[in-house]
Design a binder for these strands. Structure first.
Lengths: 101, 101
DNA sequence: TCCATTGTTTGATACTTGTCAAACGATACA
DNA sequence: TGTATCGTTTGACAAGTATCAAACAATGGA
């Protein structure tokens, strides 16, 4: 309950231009699109489709997580990524636009 | 009629990540927000509220026009900017997100 | 214990971007 | 004609960003 409150507050503090900036890169936008199409709503870092080195991709994922667009949970040596449900609440139309593109 | 067809085609070729990138800057996002709130849907370059030199602002406006987010018409020495109606058709939810932010 | 797997961090490099001042072009007006 | 206004272009600079290779950390399994 407290967690949810804090997360919402945090999201509201993320300005929209930072979210847009995070999405304004083909690799990052593609990652979000892959997640939106994922059957189980989760993809591990290594299972994404990307055409760059893993170090570069790790950098991009970090930007998406910092912008609160994705959230991550670690299981053993793997990192599972998913769309942050809070962004759907705060900016639902943005993900809508990505889905329909 | 032909004009409209060409504009639509042009818009579809603008990838979403370019649009997001154009909006991922506080000055440019603010300009779009001011236009969305403008009573007559038009603002001249000089009438925007911006905190940078006019050369810098001109640069930002160019990016928004190149991304087909804004369109421009010139009247004498003035340039009137407005939201490109085609972007509302192609990506309606993006402007929606900006309005509600 | 050793090795493979998954992802991060670091350092380097090339490229892009935001910014300004100054000069410029085009139009309007006296 | 001369001058003011509005906006663009250019050149320069600092800051930010994407990229890679290499080294690293943490976990799991043989």
């Amino acid at each position: 309950m407290l967690d949810i409150y804090l997360t919402m507050k945090e999201i509201k503090q993320i300005p929209l231009d930072k979210i847009m900036k995070a999405l304004g890169d083909p690799i990052r936008l593609s990652a979000v699109q892959q997640l939106l199409q994922a059957s189980n709503n989760e993809i591990t870092c290594g299972d994404f489709n990307y055409g760059v080195q893993k170090a570069t991709f790790s950098h991009h994922i970090k930007i998406l997580v910092d912008a609160n667009i994705l959230c991550a949970r670690t299981e053993g040596v793997r990192k599972f990524l998913s769309i942050n449900p809070e962004i759907e609440k705060s900016y639902p139309s943005i993900l809508e636009a990505i889905k329909n593109s």
